[in-house]
Structure formats: structure tokens, C-alpha cells
Amino acid sequence: MTFTTRRKVRFQHCDPAGIVFYPRYFEMINSVVEDWFAEVVEHDFNRLHVESGTGVPTASIETRFHAPSRLGEVLEFRLTPLATGRTSLKLRVTAYRGDERRLTSDSTLVFVDLASGRPLPWPDAMRRHFAMDSQ
């Protein structure tokens, strides 16, 4: 199952030419991941980071930029879990304006103990949501 959300391209996202400056896409991608954790996985980042002392840093990311996005456009972001490991999770995030793909980003998140920085096994409650979304 794919999680879908929208983001408006704002002035803060753009370079002087009025197109999204590529580092801002990574901020948008992170906000999509954060929303997915809150709305689908039912573990928002406050619960993870503050209450549980855990986190989900990005271990790897590969992004392809297919076409520029411009100030004022509304992009549809789609997050799809690809694979779940014992401590890691592979995700694909794509962004579209209408039928035109703007970016594809494949990343791996790792569930970690924030105090030690060491990977932890995914809790069953979270893993169940990944499995539901992978179908």
C-alpha cells in the first residue's frame, strides 16, 4: 500500500530561477517520511525520539531528478515500503505533478537507539504496519 500526501512548492524551496533547489527536496522527502510514521506506522517522531529514545536515521539515499518543479506547484508524494530487514527499512518516495514524475528517491532507514547509535530490531507493532503497507 502506498502512502500519498501533497506538498506545495514554496518560495523557501526555490533557487533564484524559481525551481526547487535539490537539497529542499530532501527536506520534503523527510517530511513525507515523518507523516507516514505518524499516520500509518502510528509512531510519530516525538514518540520515537523523545519518549522512546529511538530514531530512524537515513543510512543511504539515491535520488533521481526527472524534471524541475516550480514555485507554486503542488506535488503529490508517494511513499512505498520496499523491504523490511531486522533493523532496516527500504522505502521509495516518488513525486509527481499530475502524470509527470519529478523525482524518485530510494532510501534505507535504520531503527537505532539514540543514546548508543546502535541498530535495534524493529518492534513488532511497527513491523506489522510495514508488512501491511508492502502488500
Rank of each mutant, 00 (worst) to 15 (best):
C14R: 00
D15H: 05
E27A: 11
I61T: 14
T58K: 06
I61Q: 12
S60G: 14
W36M: 09
Y22G: 06
P23F: 15
W36G: 03
G53Q: 04
V50K: 04
R24Q: 14
E51T: 10
V20H: 00
S60Q: 14
V50C: 05
G55T: 04
A59W: 11
S60M: 14
Q12A: 15
I61A: 11
T58M: 14
V56P: 03
N46P: 03
F45V: 01
Y22K: 05
F37Y: 09
A17H: 01
T63Q: 11
D35W: 01
S52A: 10
E34K: 03
T54W: 04
V56D: 06
E27I: 13
S60A: 14
H43M: 12
P23D: 15
V33Y: 07
H49F: 02
F21S: 08
S60L: 12
W36S: 05
V20Q: 01
H49I: 00
G53M: 06
E39M: 06
P16I: 04
P23N: 12
A38T: 03
V40C: 02
V50M: 05
I61K: 05
S60P: 08
D35Y: 02
E51H: 06
I61C: 12
E62S: 09
V56S: 05
P16Y: 08
T63L: 14
C14P: 00
G53I: 06
H43W: 10
F26R: 10
S31N: 11
P57C: 14
H43C: 11
G53F: 12
E34W: 04
V56H: 02
H13A: 02
N46M: 05
A17P: 00
S31T: 13
A59C: 11
N46K: 07
P23M: 13
D15M: 09
F21C: 12
W36F: 13
I19Q: 09
E62F: 09
Y25C: 13
I29P: 02
L48G: 00
Q12K: 08
T63D: 13
S52T: 02
D44L: 00
W36E: 10
F37S: 01
G18Y: 03
L48S: 02
E51C: 07
C14W: 00
R24F: 08
E51A: 08
R47C: 01
I19H: 13
I29T: 04
A17Q: 03
P16M: 10
P23Y: 11
F21W: 14
S60T: 15
V40R: 00
G18E: 10
T54Q: 11
S60E: 15
F45C: 01
I29F: 15
H49N: 05
F26E: 13
T58D: 11
R24M: 13
A59N: 12
N30P: 07
I19W: 12
P16G: 06
M28C: 07
V32A: 05
F21R: 09
T58E: 13
D44M: 00
N46C: 05
